[in-house]
Simulated scan of single mutants.
Amino acid sequence: MSAEHESIPPWYKQFWPWFLIGLLASSVTFSLVYLTLSIRYYDGSVSGDYYKQGLAINQQLAKQEHAQTLGLEARLLVDDRTGDVVVDLQGDRQPEQLFLELIFPTESSRDRSLTLEHVRDGRYVGMVNEPLNYRWYLQLQPTEGRDAEWRLTGEARFPSDDEIALVPGL
């Protein structure tokens, strides 16, 4: 008869219901966290003309080979305090303007374009509005857009007091 009188504790005092509720609650919590992160840090979708962009790599390589045959090379220096950008271009071509693309590796919204004016003997100057931080990819070309006849590329970590080399090549 003592077996019949043994009391079973209520459900909220037992381990297993709380374990199962905890699993469900953690699943919902992690789902909401991942949803928030994916909305906040949306990285865009695949472009519709990805195939054409893939074929365009040959054109990019041709631009850089052309820069190499012209003997082009550049040194870039950015003053962190004033925002001045100075490029010294060496080679056969000295256009009146150069276009510098500053490409941030992970966020396209942070990309910047600068127009550099020819001052003298292959020296070009321009200015950035905000200080540069972290790592950037650099592309220097004589005209804006994809129709430039040559391109120099480089990579830099800012802030930096060192000169950055821009050379033909990927």
Rank of each mutant, 00 (worst) to 15 (best):
M1K: 13
S7Q: 15
I8P: 00
P9W: 04
Y12F: 14
P17H: 08
I21G: 02
G22Q: 08
L23R: 02
V28W: 06
T29S: 07
S31M: 14
L35D: 04
R40G: 00
Y42V: 00
S47G: 06
Q59E: 12
Q60F: 12
Q60P: 02
L61Q: 14
L61V: 13
L61P: 00
K63C: 01
K63W: 04
T69E: 12
A74G: 09
L76R: 10
L76D: 10
D79Y: 03
T82E: 09
T82C: 07
V85P: 08
G91N: 11
D92K: 15
Q94N: 10
L98C: 07
L98G: 07
I103H: 02
E107C: 00
E107G: 00
R112S: 04
R112T: 01
E117I: 13
E117N: 13
H118G: 01
R120Y: 08
R123P: 02
V125G: 00
G126P: 05
E130N: 10
P131C: 08
Y134A: 15
R135K: 11
R135M: 11
L138G: 03
Q139C: 07
Q141N: 07
Q141H: 06
T143M: 02
G145Y: 03
W150T: 08
T153V: 10
T153P: 01
G154V: 03
E155A: 06
F158T: 12
F158S: 11
P159K: 08
P168E: 08
L170N: 10
